[in-house]
Design a protein around this nucleic acid. Structure first.
Lengths: 140, 140
DNA sequence: TTCCTTGCAAATCGTTTGCATAATG
DNA sequence: CATTATGCAAACGATTTGCAAGGAA
């Protein structure tokens, strides 16, 4: 019933440490692959359990961007994300906070708006260039 | 290779007709349950195939709100949604378009922003009231 | 010694897909 | 007829979970 007391775990530390080195918002599977170098026997279940736990205690963020896989971010400061429709990469955006849209949504609504989920999509820089090159291939 | 030619299907018509009668953004399973009244042998696969097809041709909208299930909406006019964190219901919001946030996101970004996914969460009107009542239960 | 964590494997759950048959144009 | 759509069941992929054994406080 009561919240469990957290015990130390080398695996959890390593998962969080790995996440902090990455700015590309890895999936559980990516975390798992990298962790296996230091923990050959670590299981996907352990990775998921710790990612879930860390996000529940607010130490990391779990990103659901509708691409079918959860991404994880050690940067819990408020910021927005971009999902590339072509290569699937997830990129941080530098933009001002837009939480005032909560007030816009609240107008005429009979419930309580607690927050919003907002992310952007399109082509990332790399794919914008490559898509252009692909178009040129037609003249090949 | 070429896009298939669409043939008529009574099941697809019924799925779309049902969706149009609903403002609560049903899941595939809900659609399936209701369709079984008129089509006792219809399969979940058929429901999914048609919902996917209809959303691909832009006749309906597929909503991914991070709650683990896809919701479907026959209203394809631009509008925003609210997801109740307590009961899971999905509600339409009447608010002005905020697509100008795409420009905000584009500043200093080297790719191309094509659009954004935005939805809101909190307690719906019903749950706001019920949550208040629950709190009062403590006084027995 | 207590009880949280792990590894492993099996279970879930929503969604997709292969295939033979039925329905549509 | 030529094809698309269906029903059924099996396959899938991401995530969760039960359990016995290992590790931290």
């Amino acid at each position: 019933m009561a919240a469990q007391i957290l015990k130390h775990s080398r695996q959890r530390d390593a998962i969080y440490a790995f996440l902090m080195t990455r700015k590309d918002h890895p999936t559980a599977d990516v975390v798992y692959s990298h962790l296996r170098k230091d923990f050959p026997n670590i299981s996907l279940g352990t990775v998921y359990r710790n990612l879930t736990l860390l996000s529940e205690i607010g130490q990391i963020r779990r990103l659901r961007l509708g691409d079918g896989v959860d991404h994880f971010d050690a940067d819990i400061t408020p910021h927005y994300h971009f999902l590339c429709s072509r290569c699937g990469s997830v990129i941080d955006l530098k933009m001002d906070n837009i939480d005032y849209i909560n007030q816009l949504a609240d107008v005429g609504f009979d419930g309580q708006i607690a927050g919003n989920i907002t992310y952007f999509y399109g082509l990332c820089g790399k794919c914008t260039k490559e898509a252009g090159e692909d178009a040129c291939d037609r003249t090949g």
